[in-house]
Design a protein around this nucleic acid. Structure first.
Lengths: 194, 194
DNA sequence: CCCGTTGATGTCAGTTGCTGACATCAACGG
DNA sequence: CCGTTGATGTCAGCAACTGACATCAACGGG
């Protein structure tokens, strides 16, 4: 006979996402989440640093993926190209878990507190990207700016992926947003294309 | 005889910044802040929504400034040019209160919780900028991306302004970062300039 | 000049997020 | 068979934040 059900972490995550979606983040107590997962509040805080982190603990894996993609980009690739490859890799992960990622994004978008946490996670991703670029020999502030701009592109693409209906392919949205950024920073005036 | 000392809000802000700088954000209680300002905890929460907001209540004024600058930019100005003007205007405000702004930035940089709040404030600025661009006829996602990229430039510039020694002129740092962004998105390869 | 209103502040009790210290007890290994 | 391990529970406590109500100088109409 098993003393405890397996995958406490996963059960807590599922319970939290469901309750945040049903009642909103602010109207959900940690005690409720724990109860739905068949655990206690104290155990929740053993797995997650705080009430928000339950939706973000996967971020470190994403970060490693991004860094690996930049590091593994072709030698001749320009910094922004390397970042673009990384964003596509990250996008593929989200697309893979579409049925989890999209509701999660909606829950985050609905809560200022969760948005704060998302922004700092994205900032951490940007910092890691910048680091990886520096290791490729890209000097600062170019490295930081490329990384920040890349994350901005990613954010815009994911937001459109989450809200647009009918939903489009994330990879395509990332590509489009990147092209749009290039156009806009090239100094093109809005009403007169070309 | 005055019943209360004037400018409770300002006293609370000063007390909070001083205590955050001395002991760190996490090691400071709201009760301590209130006591130093000669007030009670309850009064603190009447002025500020939470313990972090005390360092950010000026953000709405900055937002109005940015929007006004974009709206008032010359008719022919490209989106990124309009945003650049806005960033310079915002930078001028920070430079004006240099002796307050720089320590404040350092306190924020030292605390993850305060960084979270700063990021969401900057995201709000980006959203407002994007709105102002749309009112100039810039379509999405160009408007959003221009605004996001502009805020990234601003963030990088302010960070350098806060940490570099000796401190350089913020206006110049903003200009340089913007040029750097343009170069980087133009596809320039890192080791081979030109 | 008096009195009712106003508004900034104080007091107090309560909820919730979060933490440290200690207890429990099946599983596992020697 | 027993000692250790590790995931979990229990409990007490602090700090952030909130709602309800009290206070009382200042202000203005009568």
């Amino acid at each position: 006979m098993v003393r405890w059900q397996p995958d406490s972490r996963g059960r807590l995550e599922q319970a939290a996402l469901a309750l945040y979606a049903e009642n909103g983040f602010e109207n959900t107590t940690v005690a409720e989440i724990a109860a739905r997962a068949g655990l206690t509040e104290r155990t929740f805080f053993r797995y997650f640093a705080d009430k928000r982190e339950v939706l973000f603990w996967g971020a470190s894996a994403l970060q490693e993926l991004l860094v690996a993609a930049v590091t593994g980009a072709p030698k001749g690739a320009a910094p922004l190209e390397a970042v673009a490859l990384a964003l596509q890799a990250a996008g593929a992960v989200l697309e893979e878990r579409r049925d989890f990622s999209r509701p999660r994004q909606r829950v985050i978008a609905a809560s200022p507190e969760l948005r704060e946490r998302e922004l700092i996670k994205l900032a951490a991703l940007a910092a890691a990207l910048a680091d990886a670029l520096r290791q490729r020999g890209v000097p600062d502030p170019a490295a930081t700016l490329t990384a920040e701009a890349g994350i901005a592109v990613f954010r815009v693409a994911v937001e459109r992926w989450t809200t647009e209906t009918p939903p489009r392919d994330l990879a395509r949205l990332i590509g489009e947003s990147l092209d749009e950024l290039k156009a806009v920073t090239a100094g093109k005036s809005p009403p007169t294309p070309g």
